[in-house]
């Protein structure tokens, strides 16, 4: 495994002035962010997670590896509190998700394969709505868009007119603006061009350095391994290896 940040240019890692991470929920005392033990998560009747066990600490960047259909997305959605845990244990940021799934959600960002943007609203409308919905009132919205390379001329453009890559950048900017403690990203590089991928990689490193925890699934292993501090390999709904 490569060192964190390898392949990330120093220019890309420069944090724009005023852009902050974690000012809402910074809790240095929290050392274990995800504590999963023998967790079973059912999709309909199919055990997408079939007794998975993993622990993720604060500030880690964890890569989820494995072919399609082995439980990576289910792991991410479970940790976000979107899927019920049928048996086993799952604690995220100190919240017992077996008992109650809603409490953790405001502290977590989950970026899946979809944009999570309203097509009819402009870029700024979307970022403002989602950051306010997350309870962020003083978020550096423009800084977040700037960080992801979304130029000012796009701010007032309806999202439906953006390319897939531009939508992805806006969606990631929303994650930045909402300042979550746990970043759960499913194929975050998908749709991004080379510069966007570089920006994303540096962003993940910066977020982790600021104390956030990043867990992401990716099939672009060369790039992902350069950023990750650790990787978990999935097979058949189980975590079969844990590599530092």
């Amino acid at each position: 495994m490569s060192e964190p940040g390898m392949g990330v240019s120093s220019a890309a890692r420069t944090r724009p002035k005023g852009l902050t991470f974690l000012s809402r929920y910074d809790d240095p005392a929290m050392s274990t962010v995800i504590d999963m033990s023998k967790a079973v998560v059912l999709l309909e009747r199919f055990p997408a997670l079939a007794g998975a066990t993993a622990t993720v600490g604060a500030g880690e960047i964890v890569l989820l590896r494995g072919p399609n259909g082995v439980g990576k997305t289910t792991f991410l959605r479970s940790c976000a509190g979107l899927l019920p845990v049928a048996s086993g244990r799952l604690n995220v940021l100190g919240h017992d998700l077996v008992a109650a799934r809603r409490a953790v959600r405001r502290h977590v960002a989950l970026l899946g394969h979809t944009s999570q943007l309203y097509d009819d609203l402009t870029v700024v409308d979307n970022v403002q709505f989602w950051s306010r919905a997350s309870g962020v009132r003083d978020g550096d919205l423009m800084g977040a868009l700037d960080r992801m390379g979304v130029s000012k001329r796009l701010h007032s453009v309806p999202v439906e007119r953006l390319s897939a890559g531009q939508k992805r950048r806006v969606a990631i900017a929303i994650v930045i603006a909402s300042r979550p403690r746990l970043w759960l990203l499913d194929e975050p590089h998908a749709g991004l061009d080379q510069s966007g991928r570089g920006l994303l990689d540096s962003l993940l490193v910066d977020a982790a350095e600021a104390g956030a925890t990043v867990v992401f699934a990716s099939h672009e292993l060369d790039r992902a391994e350069a950023v990750a501090t650790r990787s978990l390999s999935f097979s058949g709904g189980l975590i079969v290896s844990d590599d530092e």
């Binding site: 959605r77 976000a80 509190g81 979107l82 959600r105 405001r106 977590v108 960002a109 989950l110 899946g112 394969h113 979809t114 944009s115 999570q116 943007l117 309203y118 097509d119 989602w130 919905a133 997350s134 309870g135």
Partner: peptide, 13 residues
């Protein structure tokens, strides 16, 4: 559309 329902559930609203 576009996974917005999940985003709303996560938003804490």
């Amino acid at each position: 559309e576009h996974g917005i329902r999940d985003a709303l559930r996560l938003s804490g609203i």
